[in-house]
């Protein structure tokens, strides 16, 4: 379609509309089913003992297949964060919101999620948080089963305890 039907054409609109059927693969399936069916967070142990969440098809460090599944706590520590003030196309959340890296207890690397239950300017590194789950009948095959993370009331973690996980 031309933007101006009378003058010379300088720009056109060319739509792309392609329908895919995406596969989660076995590991994300484990993780997502855990969220929806058991309200649990499943990761996997790597050959060198680290716990990855969400689990993945191979250990990024060794390139070897991952080992057994491991349940990880829904409590954790904010390692770092930012405050999002900008609307994102296709994003349902309304800014401002806090986007944080959270290292869950028992995991070896952070998971990214939103923090709520505090004023945006109260977010801080080292804050202890816990998952706020959706009601059982509203759980979905997605991290959206967790509405957000919120302060757990525990004292802040020491910087040294999470500084390797930034």
């Amino acid at each position: 379609m031309s933007e101006d039907a009378q003058g010379p054409i300088t720009m056109i609109r060319t739509p792309v509309d392609l329908e895919y059927n995406i596969s989660a693969g076995p590991d994300l399936t484990l993780f997502l089913r855990g969220l929806k069916e058991e309200k649990k967070l499943y990761g996997r142990r790597s050959p060198n003992g680290d716990v990855y969440i969400p689990p993945r098809g191979a250990c990024p460090v060794t390139g070897q297949p991952m080992l057994e599944e491991v349940e990880v706590s829904d409590h954790g520590t904010v390692t770092t964060f930012c405050l999002i003030n900008i609307p994102i196309e296709g994003q349902e959340l309304k800014p401002p919101y806090v986007f944080a890296a959270i290292i869950l207890d028992g995991a070896s690397l952070p998971l990214f999620h939103m923090i709520a239950g505090i004023a945006a300017d109260e977010a801080r590194m080292g804050m202890r948080v816990k998952a706020n789950w959706k009601p059982d009948d509203e759980l979905v095959l997605s991290l959206e089963s967790i509405n957000y993370f919120e302060p757990s009331g525990e004292p802040d973690a020491d910087y040294d305890s999470y500084k390797e996980h930034l």
Binding site: A24, C82, Q91, L111, H113, M114, S142
Partner: peptide, 8 residues
């Protein structure tokens, strides 16, 4: 699909 919902 299956990716964390928080895109920023």
């Amino acid at each position: 699909p299956f990716q964390p919902p928080i895109t920023s």
